[in-house]
Design a protein around this nucleic acid. Structure first.
Length: 464
DNA sequence: TGAAATGTTGGGGCG
DNA sequence: ACGCCCCAACATTTC
């Protein structure tokens, strides 16, 4: 009798059992599957302790789901190639199945492994495989709008891959213990939790996404990004369900909410494509000329930005939300990024590195794309003269100062009238609100009108 | 997915 | 009735 096939399901950024093409392929021909995750120092050391913990939480959850199906997650530490060689040998596996990842490190890693081992890559990191969305001449898009039009034109209805009911026997091989980690109150780990979150969002909030998403204090966004980063939630499932939801709402503003949310998924896909096609963006500006911006890079000012002590309430609230929770509202991300690049003239790469060190959803493609967009040096970038006014943004998107007060307790008693501009408070009111400027809350690090002009001057110097 | 500066229009107050 | 001024509201241009 012929021996049963054994396949390794090497999970990397697809920590899920639902809609998983790589896992489905590993299970074909009735094979036994060895679920494997490799703790790769190349990645873990360059990531952040907090994001690693979030990863570990999700690994534990994946292990639990696998155990319910008579399997388990094998955890190994080390460099991927030798680890895979070892596990192949120990388990007698025939092939390795994994979801394709388009980031530079992942591509070179997988290419090297393919030279030695039967590694089969399958799509799933994006809604459509990257290679399908190209310009008529075969070149990649570099501008979002035509890219998204083409994307929508060629997308076909698809079936989600079902959750496997059982994964076969696992050979008696060893596994590392799971590293210590703690739960994140805002982002409960695991597929079950995220499925529920998606359902609630689609049911209750997505139709108001267009009108609510920019208000920093509200829960107007989906809060799904950390799950998308690790593939705990399938981007395809999320897209498909949102798309179906769009077809059963009737009011135009509700349709718009869904449409705009789907558009955000396409931005993600766009930036993954950009990083894949133009990997030099990980090293510097997409457009070379922007390497010449005369950044000031003042270390002290960079520190006040990181710790949320710039004296601009909305900026500081955002930075403290990031520091405390590992997440920041998207509107504030744009505001703090504009403030760093334009008002402080500190290199977008410094900001990118800090975000990457703090964010649970920190993702090279999206983070890099977002920062280059804000700095105005990217593919489909904001024009260099687009400088956010931190006060105007504050009044517009946190009108009652609810978000500001949530993250800046020292402004708790500042009256509404001064919540966006506490430095304008008369001294006796500062005393009364227990918020003396320069003592309880810092004075502005720089005056915006001056900083704006300075940024315009600096940027215009490098114009061709 | 901006903001500020500048230009235009139109209504109301007023001599 | 008329012209003039002021200014808000909106539109356009510029950075």
């Amino acid at each position: 009798m012929e021996r049963k096939r054994i396949n390794i399901w090497w999970t990397r950024r697809d920590l899920r059992l639902h809609d998983n093409q790589a896992l489905t392929a590993a299970l074909s021909e009735n094979a036994d599957v060895v679920p494997l995750f490799i703790l790769d120092e190349n990645i873990l050391d360059r990531s952040s302790p907090r994001r690693n913990e979030f990863l570990f939480e999700n690994l534990k959850s994946l292990d639990t789901s696998l155990r319910k199906r008579g399997s388990r997650l094998i955890l190994r530490k080390g460099k991927p190639l030798p680890v895979l060689q070892q596990v192949m040998q120990e388990s007698g596996a025939d092939a390795i199945f994994a979801e394709e990842d388009y980031s530079p490190y992942a591509k070179s890693r997988d290419k090297q492994i393919s030279e030695y081992l039967p590694l089969i890559l399958l799509p799933g990191l994006t809604i459509q495989p990257l290679s399908t969305v190209k310009k008529a001449d075969g070149n990649p898009y570099t501008i979002f709008t035509p890219y998204s039009r083409q994307w929508e034109k060629i997308i076909q209805p698809f079936k989600e891959f079902p959750v496997p009911t059982q994964l076969g026997d696992i050979p008696p091989i060893s596994s590392e213990p799971f590293p210590l980690s703690h739960p994140f109150p805002l982002f409960p780990a695991g597929e079950e939790a995220v499925q529920k979150r998606l359902m609630v969002f689609l049911q209750d909030r997505i139709t108001e996404y267009s009108s609510q998403r920019d208000f920093a204090a509200k829960e107007g966004t989906s809060l799904l990004s950390p799950y998308f980063h690790f593939g705990v939630l399938s981007i395809r499932s999320a897209y498909q369900r949102a798309f179906r939801r769009q077809n059963n709402v009737s009011l135009p503003e509700e349709k718009e909410g869904v449409e705009i949310w789907i558009n955000e998924l396409l931005w993600r896909e766009f930036f993954i494509m950009i990083l894949s096609e133009f990997p030099h963006v990980a090293q510097g500006s997409f457009r070379k000329v922007y390497e010449r911006i005369p950044w000031r890079n003042n270390e002290e000012e960079f520190n006040t930005w990181k710790t949320g002590k710039t004296g601009y309430p909305l900026v500081d609230a955002g930075m403290r939300q990031l520091l405390e929770t590992g997440w920041m509202h998207n509107r504030t991300r744009m505001v703090v990024a504009s403030f760093l690049c334009k008002d402080l003239l500190i290199s977008w790469q410094r900001g990118e590195a800090w975000f990457n060190a703090q964010l649970l959803d920190g993702d090279l493609a999206a983070n890099n794309g977002g920062w280059q967009w804000c700095a105005g040096c990217g593919t489909d970038a904001a024009p260099y003269f687009r400088v956010f006014n931190p006060i105007t943004q504050s009044k517009r998107f946190d009108p009652d100062g609810e978000y500001i007060r949530a993250w800046l307790p020292e402004l708790e008693n500042v009256p509404d009238r001064y919540i966006h501009t506490p430095w304008k408070m008369p001294y006796d009111l500062q005393m009364e609100s227990k918020c003396v400027i320069g003592k309880d809350y810092p004075d502005r690090i720089v005056e915006h009108a001056f900083a704006r002009q300075r940024a315009l001057d600096a940027y215009s110097k490098i114009k061709i």
